[in-house]
Design a protein around this nucleic acid. Structure first.
Lengths: 154, 154
DNA sequence: CCAAAATAGATGTATTTGCATGTATCACCG
DNA sequence: CGGTGATACATGCAAATACATCTATTTTGG
């Protein structure tokens, strides 16, 4: 099979689209991380608590968490050290794989996640809801999910 | 005037939308920065060269650049130090404001930006173009631009 | 079953980042 | 004007991050 060469206009469109997605993320993230909630805990550390809180089993492998954040493996390992030192998460050995580490929230971790989460969600809503109609938000959600799914499958 | 209280479903939609936008950015960025082009220059440093290359006058104030990247003022100052040491950019004093610094690309900086840029754009196209139709990309572009414009105006 | 390769995570170490602060210039107001 | 506060950028220093490497476990191929 031959792979069709992309036209230069198609390449340009993709580049512009990514550029805009990236810049909008920068703009929103800048505002969000300036919120007072993240004086208590840096947003990257909160994100790990959040990810754990969303997980049905309550526990995740470090390498699974690593897929969700833009950090190197060693940086995540140390970030988790900090969370563990503060008593917000607990490491345990994965039952089915002796190399793996399962991470779970402690009661204090759940508490802090919810506390920060409430404020964070408010901030998000203040920033995103007035910018786009509900239909536009649903479409943006759909498109970013589709993009993410494609990238993950590649 | 009374500000309408957002419904909880509206808050939830905004939060989910942002979450998806953010994760898609993480997924794409992870791939892009793993590209071989960014062995030569970290992607954050490339981004500054790119921003300068797009600018009509060829020069930008540091604080303008700072609005486009997710870095503190001091981190950008040091990033520019590194670029300057490598001979890729030049600092000059802003003519209309003695406090300000104008940053411009050197010939070597332009060269390297183009070189990395060609490969980078190819990588973007490979990741984004097959994921979404042209119409979907245009819509994603429109929505992220709208979001960014709102956030910037706030 | 065993040896070799692969994978998960931790750790030493150099680099990058951010916070607090410093210096210089500018803008405003009496 | 003159002085007070604001703005733009740089810098000292502590913290976070990445790269290379290490250990331990699992997987694979003979």
């Amino acid at each position: 099979m031959t792979t069709k060469a992309p036209t230069s206009s198609a390449v340009r469109l993709a580049a512009e689209t990514w550029e805009s997605l990236f810049r909008s993320q920068v703009a929103v993230m800048r505002r969000l991380q300036a919120g007072p909630a993240f004086k208590k805990l840096p947003i990257k550390e909160y994100d790990v608590l959040f990810t754990l809180s969303r997980c049905p089993t309550g526990k995740l492998r470090l390498n699974e968490i690593n897929d969700h954040v833009l950090l190197s493996q060693s940086s995540l390992s140390r970030l988790v050290d900090r969370l563990e030192t503060r008593g917000l998460v607990e490491r345990s050995i994965a039952p089915d794989d002796g190399r793996g580490i399962l991470l779970g929230l402690t009661a204090a971790g759940q508490e802090l996640q919810k506390e920060i989460g409430r404020e964070h969600v408010r901030d998000i809503a203040e920033l995103v809801a007035p910018a786009l109609t509900a239909d536009e938000q649903r479409e943006l959600l759909r498109l970013t999910e589709k993009l993410q799914a494609f990238v993950a499958s590649k």
